[in-house]
Design a protein around this nucleic acid. Structure first.
Length: 274
DNA sequence: ACGAGGTCCTGCGAGC
DNA sequence: TGCTCGCAGGACCTCG
């Protein structure tokens, strides 16, 4: 579910709640979310750990501890919440990781589908992990020239490349659809056949849309909730995602839909996107 | 290097 | 009403 704006929202909501706290003990209900770490090692590392800060990198929430980093990839249905009171049975059911804090509250990683993953990385592991990810779209240091150069290395459909976290991070299916519409680019166009002006527009639209989505606290279709448990609001501003068959908000043309690109739902306007 | 297709997992809405 | 089917915001893998 969560793309960059959703994870950014969660991190902003929870950062003040977690900074300086310590984890008293932790519980894990399913091992299948773990990557490269055993249940035993994860729980041992969390118990007694001090939380230095909560950060975001790409679509991941990074809990920086005094003994390494817990990287949380929420996948399609993961979310992070701090509970001040006992969990309801429904919350209990989907709480994959539970970390009891030293102020009595409980940090919960909730994941209904459990396609999300948890990694525990030391300094070297984090450096390597971070280096394999592309640049942050909202980083002012990412120029349109660098963006265009990275994108145009591939002959794949531009939408697929835009969602490739090695090329640029944070953009998933919803915001890829929206940004390509706003930039007037056909999502099936080969990435190496888009000119400098096209990539200039695309980067500008990616940034504008991600920022607007952050301002609205993310896009909620079903599972996603902010760090305070509220739905986001950006679904009200979507121009194409989820609107297949409906009229284009710009020109009125019936919006087209396909699953041919990367087997993901793609919605676009034949007239506005070339 | 690329596209196609499958995998992980559960819930929900559509359609019969 | 109750069932099956297809689909869902992500990331990773193999195969040809």
């Amino acid at each position: 579910m969560p793309e960059l704006p959703e994870v950014e929202t969660i991190v902003r909501d929870l950062r003040p709640e977690l900074a300086g706290r310590a984890i008293v003990k932790a519980q894990l209900t399913h091992d299948d979310v773990l990557r490269g770490v055993s249940r035993r090692r994860l729980l041992a590392a969390l118990a007694g750990a001090r939380i230095l800060r909560l950060a975001r990198r790409a679509k991941h929430a990074v809990l920086e501890l005094d003994r390494g980093r817990l990287v949380i990839q929420p996948g399609m249905s993961g979310s992070l919440l701090v509970h001040g009171r006992a969990l309801t049975p429904e919350q209990e059911r989907y709480a994959v990781l539970r970390a009891e804090l030293d102020d009595g509250r409980i940090l919960v990683y909730r994941d209904v589908r459990r396609l999300g993953t948890l990694l525990l990385l030391d300094a070297k592991g984090w450096t390597d992990y971070d280096a394999a990810l592309g640049p942050e779209p909202l980083d002012p240091g990412l120029t349109p020239e660098i963006f265009a150069e990275r994108m145009a290395r591939s002959r794949s459909a531009v939408k697929k490349v835009l969602m490739d976290q090695r090329v640029i991070v944070g953009v998933g299916n919803i915001y890829a659809n929206e940004a390509l519409f706003a930039a007037g680019i056909d999502p099936s166009r080969a990435a190496d056949r888009i000119d400098a002006a096209g990539y200039h527009r695309l980067l500008a639209e990616v940034r504008r849309i991600l920022q607007a989505a952050i301002d609205s606290k993310g896009t909620t279709f079903r599972d996603y909730r902010t760090g305070t448990g509220e739905p986001g609001g950006f679904q009200l501003e979507l121009m194409v995602y989820g609107r297949e068959g409906e009229p284009c908000r710009v020109c009125g043309t019936r919006l087209a839909g396909t699953h041919l690109i990367d087997a993901r739902a793609t919605v676009f306007c034949h007239r506005c996107q070339r």
